[in-house]
């Protein structure tokens, strides 16, 4: 097989398309680059979906934790504590166990035990907890002047939240949120590593890297390829979040923008 054929056969392998049999002998660099890249689809899918859905739950959790009402504050605090205080490893274990039991009682919910749905839910809850804590920290450090100014303009309730508090919270939380996004994408490698089963050898980038490391007995080629892909992915995330950051801070004078870069509040 030439390299072009390898790419044509395997670039969608992680989604179950293309040649069904993985290479079993005469391994080439081309095969390793192609298959590990195809697995990256899963990492991006898990990361993107958890990040998008987690963003909204995180906003709610941050407001809940900052709320003066006990029945809103306590559940938010506990949710954040449990998901931030335990290894993702153990969360996957319990989630898979729970999903199996749900499937036993309600077979129509069987889709939960597949990685595509089940693991995405766990990652969603996990990142919502971490992001919720970041947003809560940002909420606490909104300058009083901003809120006083909003009051002076006669804004209150929902309007004040939407037009002043929420944008300021995002602006302050953004650098830490960028870090959280990077960590989330890294954490997606745990899904198939320990947690959810791999169906028909359609796994993530780490699954294929392990496959090659196991077949060639040489960890020094597939894992550095995987590392390279993840460095590129990380750079992509930093670039994308940087664009949003610039938009969030566009009203500030140039020198204050630079200062706002550093907020070591929360990283994972």
């Amino acid at each position: 097989m030439t390299c072009g054929e390898v790419i044509a056969n395997y670039w969608l392998r992680a989604l179950g398309h293309g040649l069904r049999a993985l290479p079993t002998s005469d391994f080439t660099l081309c095969q390793q680059f192609t298959l590990i890249a195809s697995g990256l689809v899963w990492n991006i899918y898990f990361g993107a979906i958890a990040l998008l859905a987690g963003f909204f739950l995180a906003s709610a959790l941050a407001l809940g934790k900052a709320s003066p009402r006990l029945w809103l504050r306590k559940p938010s605090e506990w949710f954040i504590f449990v998901f931030r205080g335990s290894p993702l490893f153990i969360q996957f274990f319990f989630a898979y166990f729970l999903f199996l039991n749900i499937k036993g009682s309600y077979p129509e919910m069987g889709v939960l035990t597949s990685a595509g749905v089940g693991a995405a839910i766990v990652l969603f809850l996990n990142t919502a907890a971490y992001t919720g804590e970041i947003f809560y920290g940002a909420l606490q450090s909104i300058p009083r002047g901003d809120i006083e100014a909003a009051d002076a303009y006669g804004l209150s309730g929902w309007a004040r939240f939407r037009r002043v508090i929420w944008p300021t919270m995002l602006r302050l939380a953004w650098p830490a949120y960028t870090n959280e996004a990077i960590f989330l994408f890294h954490a997606t490698t745990l899904v198939f590593f320990s947690g959810f089963p791999v169906v028909q050898q359609s796994g993530d980038a780490l699954y294929y890297a392990r496959y090659f490391a196991d077949k060639t007995f040489n960890p020094f080629i597939p894992y550095p390829i995987l590392a390279l892909y993840f460095i590129l992915l990380t750079l992509g995330i930093i670039g994308l979040f940087g664009l949003v950051n610039r938009r969030l801070n566009r009203h500030l004078p140039q020198d204050r923008r630079a200062r706002l870069r550093f907020r070591p509040q929360v990283i994972r």
Binding site: R210, A213, P224, F230
Partner: peptide, 10 residues
Amino acid sequence: GVPDIAFFLF
């Protein structure tokens, strides 16, 4: 930039 699992494995 590298996930810690990938790093530890080699």
